[in-house]
């Protein structure tokens, strides 16, 4: 008994964390450092030359933000904006729809039947491989022959087939639609869980006060699910920043169609002409900084709750330990 008490368990903490730390060092930290290094070097061309620092180490970063000859913003900024546009236009209706549905599905006066069915169906698009979805939509929106054009011309909504994939507006609208369509179900389920978590007594009290649906939603539901909404917002934003599969496979990631996202920019710059690994490494770092900033925001959003929880746990543990100590 005495001997066991002397055992220092903290070494197991290190021991059990070692695999994670090792994998992290090798597969995340090292690549990040290497990426940072590459951004300042001469690594370009199909077969990059021996690694050497650039004369102007910052030239790649400068290039990323340099205006194009025609006076337009750089391709990198353009890709950031394209990404942001796609994300925003998909997220607003996504969140709106999810909020609406979650309010409907949790309404305590009107019980919506077949909720399970709807949830399963709404979430379905999220589980399917994005690559499959992208190519499916590319085929659906084919020109001049394609299901969507077929429907639109048969229903006489359009007289002649529409070349969806030749216009930036329609291309981007479809990408936004796909994103929204794939994700609103997930957001909805998340929000429903949050709404269910609200103490029902609060709703009851409001009802006694004569609050209508809208007031309940606005005054109780919305403020209560705000942390979860923020969480969804940040995760969605970071997910949106690394958007790759759908714009690439649906619209070939074409810049002139507004489908070149940052991830595609990084990919194209390094794996296609001009094969500039250094430039795309620099772009990765800028993206990295943006994501770190967002992660910090996420951390702060969630910290309060978490810290409070931890504190509670610790106290309970302490109490338990004391009790145990007394017992022994």
């Amino acid at each position: 008994m005495k001997r066991r008490k002397l055992v220092n368990y903290s070494k197991y903490g290190y021991l059990f964390a070692i695999p994670f730390i090792l994998a992290f060092l090798i597969f995340t930290l090292y690549p990040i450092c290497y990426t940072i290094l590459i951004a300042f070097t001469n690594q370009e061309g199909v077969i990059p030359p021996k690694i050497k620092l650039l004369k102007d180490p910052l030239s790649c970063f400068k290039y990323l933000f340099k205006k194009r000859n025609s006076g337009k913003i750089s391709y990198f900024l353009d890709s950031l904006i394209a990404t942001a546009k796609i994300w925003i236009v998909n997220f607003i209706p996504q969140l709106g729809l999810a909020l609406l549905l979650s309010a409907w599905f949790t309404d305590n006066r009107v019980k919506v039947k077949a909720q399970g069915f709807y949830k399963v169906v709404f979430y379905l698009p999220n589980i399917i491989t994005a690559a499959t979805v992208a190519i499916l939509f590319r085929t659906l929106f084919g020109y001049p022959i394609g299901p969507v054009n077929d429907i639109l011309t048969s229903l006489k909504i359009l007289k002649t087939p529409y070349y969806f994939l030749n216009k930036p507006k329609s291309t981007r609208a479809i990408i936004e639609f796909i994103q929204c369509w794939q994700w609103y179900g997930s957001t909805m389920i998340t929000l429903i869980a949050a709404v269910i978590g609200i103490n029902p007594e609060i709703f009851e009290a409001a009802e006694i006060d004569g609050a209508n649906r809208w007031r309940k939603f606005w005054n109780i539901t919305l403020p209560s699910v705000r942390p979860i909404m923020l969480f969804t917002l940040v995760t969605s934003m970071i997910g949106g920043l690394s958007m790759f599969d759908i714009p690439l496979l649906f619209a070939e990631g074409r810049q002139d169609l507004g489908a070149q996202t940052v991830a595609i920019y990084i990919y194209n710059t390094s794996f296609k002409q001009p094969y500039k690994y250094n430039r795309s490494a620099a772009a990765s770092i800028v993206l990295f900084l943006i994501i770190i900033a967002l992660s910090v925001a996420l951390f702060y959003v969630m910290r309060d709750k978490d810290a409070a929880k931890l504190e509670k746990m610790r106290k309970a543990e302490l109490k338990r330990a004391k009790a145990l100590g007394r017992g022994v």
Partner: peptide, 27 residues
């Protein structure tokens, strides 16, 4: 792509040529 955009009337000729030159500069 420039030809298609100009041909279908989505952009005018100067625009597509300017865009093309930008793309060339990028590589």
């Amino acid at each position: 792509n420039c030809g298609s955009a100009y041909g279908h009337g989505d952009k005018d000729k100067d625009t597509v040529i300017a865009e093309f030159k930008d793309a060339a500069a990028e590589i």
